[in-house]
């Protein structure tokens, strides 16, 4: 669990980066800090591993005030991935991933096994990629190495600063998908910084929307942030198409299904696990405006709208 308690950061030049920010991130959750550039989201994240020390307030990680913990020891227990990765160009992929285990003095064979497992996990077979150098990899591959490096000691906390910022949209979507798989049932607490609300919605269990003056505007589930923005700033930031974004994270509700009709044989079909976004796309391409959800029933435009409104009301 990570708790920020009335944290303020004022830089020596007088800029207030973060202003009286309090939030609690439960263990195992993925919390996304999102906001326009200069809103203090990166500073907030960097205060968790003491790359930045708060001017006032407390940061509590695993029950201890970080101000009382040696920053080097603290950082070794927290995974860290930054934009454009910051891989060490003079070291092989294996050596990069092994950084923290080496700092912690693990035995060589244990490091070797762990590193190879991690490279497999992030989709870079070690026998092919292990001995390459960062400049021999694509942007997406470098990003994967960065993630493997951060996960090396299976840290209880993972900090990620715009981890998918430097890759093309297709690769980004794939990485986000894989990251979700990796984190979804893990007990790792993740703090991810992004300026992309869609990324926040896709990955976050909870989203912290930060305003221009380093002020926390809303800290809630994606559903709530999109469905019921707490302030005009949040409403503006998530956009007038916020409910369309919401479709991507809303599940099908059986109660909104209509019974199957004999004519529905030719209607497009989707599994129960589909999101409303996929359902809507199928409705738009369907002649009858009806989409079969397995054998459970049929969704129409009205059903989609009811599901979204019920989801917002229940959030």
């Amino acid at each position: 669990m990570i708790t920020l308690d009335s944290v303020t950061k004022v830089y020596p030049d007088g800029t207030t980066a973060v202003q009286d920010l309090s939030l609690t991130i439960p263990a195992g959750d993925v919390a996304v800090l999102v906001g326009p550039s200069g809103c203090g989201k990166t500073t907030t994240m960097r205060m968790i591993n003491r790359l930045v020390d708060p001017t006032s307030g407390r940061v509590i990680v695993a029950g201890r005030d970080t101000a009382t913990v040696d920053p080097v020891q603290l950082r070794r227990s927290i995974g860290y991935v930054i934009q454009q990765v910051g891989l060490f160009g003079h070291q092989t992929v294996r050596r990069n991933v092994a950084t923290v285990p080496i700092l912690l003095g693990w035995r060589a064979d244990r490091i070797r096994r762990r590193v190879d497992d991690l490279l497999d996990l992030v989709g870079l077979p070690p026998e092919t990629y292990g001995d390459r150098y960062p400049h021999q990899l694509s942007g997406g591959q470098r990003q994967r190495v960065g993630v493997a490096r951060a996960l090396a000691i299976d840290p209880p906390i993972l900090l990620m600063d715009e981890p998918f910022g430097a890759v093309d949209p297709i690769e980004r979507a794939r990485l986000q998908q894989e990251m979700r798989q990796l984190l979804i049932d893990g007990d790792t607490t993740v703090v991810l910084v992004t300026h992309d609300i869609d990324e926040a919605v896709r990955l976050g269990d909870r989203i912290a929307v930060m305003g221009p003056t380093g002020h926390l505007e809303q800290f809630a589930s994606p559903l709530e942030v999109l469905g019921r923005p707490a302030t005009p700033f949040v409403a503006d930031f998530v956009g007038s198409d916020r409910l369309v974004r919401l479709l991507g994270v809303t599940a099908i509700d059986v109660r909104r299904l209509q019974p199957l009709h004999p004519d529905d044989g030719s209607a497009p079909q989707l599994p129960m696990a589909a999101t409303l976004r996929e359902v809507l796309a199928a409705i738009l391409s369907s002649d009858s405006g009806r989409v079969r959800i397995g054998d459970a029933g049929v969704l129409t435009m009205a059903g989609v709208r009811e599901t979204v409104q019920a989801a917002i009301a229940g959030a």
């Binding site: 950082r75 227990s77 930054i82 990765v85 060490f88 160009g89 950084t99 700092l103 951060a150």
Partner: peptide
Amino acid sequence: VDARATDAARGMGMTGRQ
């Protein structure tokens, strides 16, 4: 030296000397 590399190094818990 690429500031991202040194930032990552510090963030992973290297001492200044390391």
